[in-house]
Design a protein around this nucleic acid. Structure first.
Lengths: 154, 154
DNA sequence: AGAAAATAGTTTACGCGGAAACTAAATCCG
DNA sequence: CGGATTTAGTTTCCGCGTAAACTATTTTCT
């Protein structure tokens, strides 16, 4: 197929020009694809991607401040409040106001939350390694490396 | 810095564990970064990323069906209706109902739209090549290639 | 031809994520 | 100390993007 063009079922060939060189465009398409894979593989657990990630990080860092989780995962404070609320409502996470700073909120997993993470750890990790389809193992490694470098998360 | 961990200003080291290997997480962070770069570089023109892309594709394929644009750019029909409406309201795009199929909508640029694309073509293309910071030129090429392969758009 | 099914797009209703304004608590500083 | 500033989170309000239902048109099938 010609460079910068895709075929649509009942249409002539469509020229995409330089947008197929656009990181922004490609990343948006990639995200749509990854989200679809997430819901396919992990949707049964009833958590959204961001919720899963937050649960995971709280599990690794019990007692972390809500704002620190938000900063780390690039979640805005307003959204973090709601997201945390959903996890608390599901009984997976508990909030605690530390006495030394009563403005703050510290988060940890409830027993249910811990057991949820323990139970689904494998499914979660397996997902990480099957979501990379289309790419060979070496390409997937390279892709992750470049993403880490691009995002500054290494 | 240790693998799988980031430093937050007023906190202990935070463990991110395997999420730094997660395509979903990394792509979300990358998208936040690219969007920020877009608004920084192209926000002055008053169009959002998706609008810019749609305008661009219509410019390259005048008379394209609305649904074909939507399919190609992975935009849902309901959203496409609104997005097209915004471009029409700005006077950049015109809708036309072809007589041979009166259900369809064909899109093309207005003279204003064409002139907009002509005028900002360079800014748009330049953006494509400066949004890749953090990566060397070779890495950026490789990154694009992998994204194209992953998304199936080559 | 005419009913049934399919197709193109629009409308309506909703959830997610964000900006701005707000509340409460801690810190600064004169 | 006590007012001003900063910080942590929350609340309110809004826009984007989506699913589901709907309208209009075309195609299919008998």
């Amino acid at each position: 197929m010609a460079h910068g063009a895709v075929q649509d079922a009942d249409e002539q060939e469509i020229s995409l020009g330089d947008i197929t060189q656009s990181l922004g465009f490609l990343i948006r398409i990639a995200q749509i694809k990854v989200f679809a894979a997430f819901y396919e593989g992990l949707g049964q657990f009833g958590l959204k991607p961001g919720e899963f990630t937050v649960l995971w990080v709280i599990g690794l860092n019990p007692g972390l401040r809500q704002g620190t989780v938000a900063n780390t995962l690039r979640i805005k404070p307003a959204h973090m409040t709601k997201l945390t609320g959903r996890l608390v409502d599901r009984g997976l996470v508990s909030r605690e106001t530390p006495p030394d700073d009563r403005r703050a909120v510290r988060l940890k997993l409830t027993p249910e939350g811990q057991s949820f993470v323990d139970t689904h750890r494998d499914a979660f990790l397996t997902f990480h390694f099957t979501e990379k389809d289309n790419l060979s193992s070496e390409e997937a490694d390279q892709f992750l490396l470049l993403l880490q470098k691009f995002t500054g998360l290494h």
